[in-house]
Simulated scan of single mutants.
Amino acid sequence: MKIYSIVLILFLGTLSLKGNEIPTNPCSKLNSKGFLLYDFCDTCGCSGNGGSMGFGTGLNNNFFGLRYIGQRYQSRDGIFANSPWIDENFNTVQLWAQVPIGQRFMVNAVLPYQFHTRTFADGIEQNINGLGDATVLGFYQVLQQTPDSIVSIKPEHTLQLGGGIKMPTGKFDSENLEGSVNPSFQLGTGSWDYLLAANYGLKHRNWGLSFMVNYTFKSENDKEYRFGNQLNYTLNTFKTYYFGTDFALTPQIGVGGEHFEKNKEFGLEVNDTGGYVFFGKAGVELNYKTLALGVSSMLPLAQDLNNGKVEAKNRWAIYVNINI
């Protein structure tokens, strides 16, 4: 009930915003570039750390771009309740793209480069960097409504179903499992993982709401370690403000969560793994012709990760896309 109340408060808060309505004669360039055709994909692109800020912007049908994601955690340096905390910073730079194939199909792809650091209680710092796990997903547009006019008086619904794979292009180092209780301090899972995803969107004039859910089936890597399967979900609301024919500003607000099953090593469950985290999300995207600049932030509202021995502090992202 608490989660539903938070979602309702966030949604009503977004509806209370006041701003420009959609112009009577919007720029034809924006319309032809798919600015008004919403994609609601938000599937995990980070590897080995459970961090997810999503694939698509929620505003454009096709693009390619560059995104930075920063995540901050604290984890216990040892297995005891009074073990000191480790500060961990996970940093990811992603090449990402979303390309439609025909009228109903689209492909999403992410190639991450990771550079992570953690600082122990004695001041010693550990750094790892390198290519992360690449992810490719395909989606089929089950329900698609694209009105002839931007001022359509009827709400539009969009539904996409799809799936894909995460490839073990990032290094998994079993030595990083020793000492800290956070096994996710890795560049990759070292395993072939498989995803199922669904995206639903509701749009009316310049208002929008999107809901995403995806599930990742994780397999055992060659070190006989398997990260737990993962459920991601997110709910976003947004409104677009138009300034002339070339500029548009879209603030977004929402919630999202992640649930992790326990990891396994040599077929046995690993203690102090698994759990959940529930985030509040806010962001904004600025569009100028074919260029999109966005920034977003996530703060935990509730969590229980690794039996309380790992704490998510915050996440944020900034991206630049070219709409194609």
Rank of each mutant, 00 (worst) to 15 (best):
K223H: 08
V99W: 06
T250A: 11
K171R: 14
L66D: 07
L291W: 10
I153G: 03
M298E: 15
P251M: 05
L10R: 10
E220A: 01
I128M: 01
E269K: 02
D193A: 04
S28C: 11
N229K: 06
L143A: 04
S191I: 00
Y242V: 03
W192Q: 03
P147M: 01
G78H: 03
G163Q: 05
T216G: 01
T245Y: 03
S83P: 08
N89Y: 11
P100K: 14
V136M: 13
N62E: 15
V255Q: 05
T119Y: 02
L291T: 07
G188S: 13
K154W: 04
S210M: 04
G190L: 09
E175R: 11
T14C: 10
F278Q: 11
G13W: 08
M53W: 11
K309E: 02
S75R: 04
N221A: 06
R104A: 11
R76Y: 05
T250P: 04
C44H: 02
Q98F: 12
K218E: 08
T43H: 02
G254R: 03
N229T: 02
Y140M: 08
G275Y: 07
N176D: 06
I253T: 14
T189Q: 10
P26R: 07
K2C: 04
Q141S: 14
R104Y: 14
N61A: 15
D304I: 08
Q144S: 08
R72V: 07
F80H: 14
T158Y: 04
M212C: 03
T273C: 00
N61H: 15
N263M: 00
M106N: 15
G275T: 09
R205P: 00
F64Q: 05
I69Q: 11
I253E: 09
K262P: 00
Y4E: 13
V107L: 15
G56F: 11
L231D: 14
A198E: 04
D304C: 12
Q145G: 03
G208P: 01
D42I: 02
T169D: 13
N20Q: 02
G164R: 08
S184E: 09
Y68D: 09
Y200Q: 03
M212I: 05
F247H: 12
N62Q: 15
L159A: 11
N60Q: 15
L305S: 02
C27V: 02
K166N: 13
I153R: 05
Y140A: 13
T92Q: 14
Q160T: 08
A121I: 01
Q303H: 09
G201A: 03
P155V: 00
W96T: 12
Q144H: 10
N307G: 04
A282E: 11
L291C: 01
I6D: 13
G102P: 06
V310E: 04
G70M: 06
P300M: 13
G201Q: 01
L37F: 13
P147N: 00
L131R: 12
N60W: 14
P300H: 13
N91F: 02
R104L: 11
Q230C: 07
R104G: 04
Y276P: 12
Y241C: 01
G50M: 07
A134S: 15
F115D: 01
W85I: 03
M106Y: 14
I128T: 01
K313M: 07
L235Q: 09
G228Q: 03
M106G: 11
K218H: 06
K33D: 15
